[in-house]
Simulated assay, not measured.
Amino acid sequence: GTVFAMEPKGAMIDIGAKTAAFMPLQEVSINRVEALSDVLQPGEVREFFIMSEENEDGQLSLSIRRIEYQRAWERVRQLQKEDATIYSEVFATNRGGALVRVEGLRGFIPGSHISTRKPKEDLVADFLPLKFLEVDEERNRLVLSHRRALVERKMNRLEVGEVVLGTVRGIKPYGAFIDIGGVSGLLHISEISHEHIETPHTVLNVNDQMKVMIIDLDAERGRISLSTKALEPEPGDMLTDPQKVFDKAEEMAARYKQMLLEQAEENEPMGVTLD
């Protein structure tokens, strides 16, 4: 269709029918616009989506927003398939989390997936790296994770068997959450020591600084598993002399890496030569 008249409430479009079609102002874009002239110009030829059948005057209603909406969902589905990291600006926050726009669509970041020490209200106008959690056009649900994007970025610089310095941020009956450079890893109770432990509280305190070794990286689920058990020179040292464990951490980690290497070599299939 060709734009031939601009009006306060919309635009008249020549689509080759007996009666000109009409596009309301709210249908001009998926994004909020102040005036038609921000998007359209008289004489411009472009695609329009037919929203409804002819009214009693024989006039069709058109939309550009519907086309942009369909293409936006196609784009975010593709980005999710590629497991892409995107950057988007927070335009509002609420009790549950933060709101952003992705390709013009409204997206939601749950509070549990926001990884920052800033008060949530102070995030407005911040650009955050994000990963997709849910893309559901039928239910109009676009859910994203800031935490997962940060964990993946951090994971790209980490490796299994590496010793890192961390701070205890939380203690649960099943283990402790350790902050390692802005992302959280789990030190499970079974990975604290070779000796049996009733509760992590008997060994660890919130805000303790400690050395831990990375034993697993799960980028897809955004999880980092940690161990001090693997760093114990003698079973039970985390209970009796944790400083000794931290002093010898790099030495014990080197042994752990060597063990992993030997296991990998043992599991490598043998080559067969045929004469």
Rank of each mutant, 00 (worst) to 15 (best):
G271L: 12
E89N: 07
R95G: 07
E89V: 14
K229C: 09
L158G: 09
M252D: 10
F108S: 03
V124D: 12
T2V: 12
M270A: 12
K9G: 03
A35T: 15
R157W: 14
I189N: 13
I114S: 00
I109Y: 02
A11I: 07
G175M: 08
A254V: 01
T228H: 09
I180Q: 04
E68T: 00
S190Y: 14
G96T: 07
E234P: 02
G111S: 13
A5S: 13
H113Q: 12
P129A: 08
I215N: 10
Y69G: 00
K118V: 06
A149I: 07
K120P: 01
R95T: 09
N55P: 00
P200L: 10
G236K: 13
V160L: 10
E68D: 04
P235S: 15
A249V: 01
Y87G: 08
G104E: 13
H113T: 03
F177T: 04
R148C: 02
K120Q: 15
I215T: 13
G43E: 15
G222Y: 10
A230L: 10
R139F: 01
A72H: 02
P119W: 10
R95E: 15
L165E: 14
M12R: 15
S227K: 12
Y87V: 11
V164Y: 05
K248F: 06
G96D: 14
I30R: 09
E121K: 14
G1P: 01
Q80E: 14
P233A: 13
N267P: 00
L261S: 09
S227I: 02
V33I: 12
G16K: 07
Q78N: 10
P242Q: 03
F49H: 07
P129K: 11
A219Y: 15
R46H: 09
P233T: 13
G166W: 06
S112T: 09
E103Q: 12
R157N: 14
E121S: 08
S29A: 05
Q70D: 14
V3S: 04
S190M: 12
V160W: 10
E56L: 07
I224M: 07
R77K: 15
E268H: 11
Y256M: 08
F177H: 08
L204V: 01
F49G: 00
A11K: 04
I30S: 00
G181F: 03
I30D: 05
A20M: 03
A253G: 04
A219P: 15
L142T: 02
L36M: 15
G166D: 09
L186E: 04
D241M: 10
Q59I: 08
K120G: 04
L226W: 01
M51W: 03
I64S: 02
A98V: 09
